[in-house]
């Protein structure tokens, strides 16, 4: 076991991979989208119920690697109950955290959300795996804002 691997696969990531939250399908969803990474075959299906511009419920299904599955699980926990505008802010912050050396946006988020998103900060050091962690967030964006596209990819 190398220290790099322990950094990438934080205990919390392994825990979410093992015990994913909000797994399954929302009944009578108002929004849904499929996320697919053609490079590695990661696949995520999101179903949501949006009420008055707020994500009342969100669930996911799919086959994916540990990073993607944990990122999806964590995402559902932070956006459930959040206003759509808030979820958009989380997306921007998470994306910046994984792709930029300086990531100030995340610091402006509620402490509990920050803490959950930051467990993925070391993924930035594994460029090929960044798409695994951002796939659910791209999928959420498609579900909320571009439902006619139906399928999100990280390409």
């Amino acid at each position: 076991m190398t220290p790099e691997m322990q950094n990438l696969y934080q205990e919390l990531i392994l825990e979410h991979n093992h015990y994913p939250r909000n797994y399954g399908r929302v009944e009578n969803p108002t929004h849904e989208a499929e996320g697919y990474n053609p490079l590695c075959g990661d696949q995520v299906h999101l179903t949501l119920r949006v009420e008055e511009e707020r994500i009342a419920d969100i669930r996911f299904e799919g086959k994916s690697c540990a990073i993607c599955r944990a990122a999806t699980s964590v995402m559902t926990t932070v956006v459930k109950g959040a206003a759509i505008a808030e979820a958009d802010r989380y997306f921007e912050a998470f994306h910046q955290l994984l792709t930029q050396e300086e990531a100030p946006l995340v610091s402006s988020l509620p402490a509990a959300v920050q803490e959950k998103l930051r467990i993925f900060s070391t993924v930035r050091l594994f460029p090929i795996r960044v798409k695994c962690a951002t796939l659910p967030w791209h999928t959420l964006r498609v579900a909320l804002h571009e439902p006619e596209k139906k399928i999100a990819t990280t390409e």
Binding site: T2, M5, L8, C40, G41, K63, S64, A66, I128, R129
Partner: peptide
């Protein structure tokens, strides 16, 4: 998942293809 295996092997210096 093969992707997790691939990253693990890469960290050990072993280049394989996953996908």
């Amino acid at each position: 998942h093969p992707h997790d295996v691939g990253t693990f092997l890469d960290q050990a210096g072993i280049a394989v293809r996953v996908g």
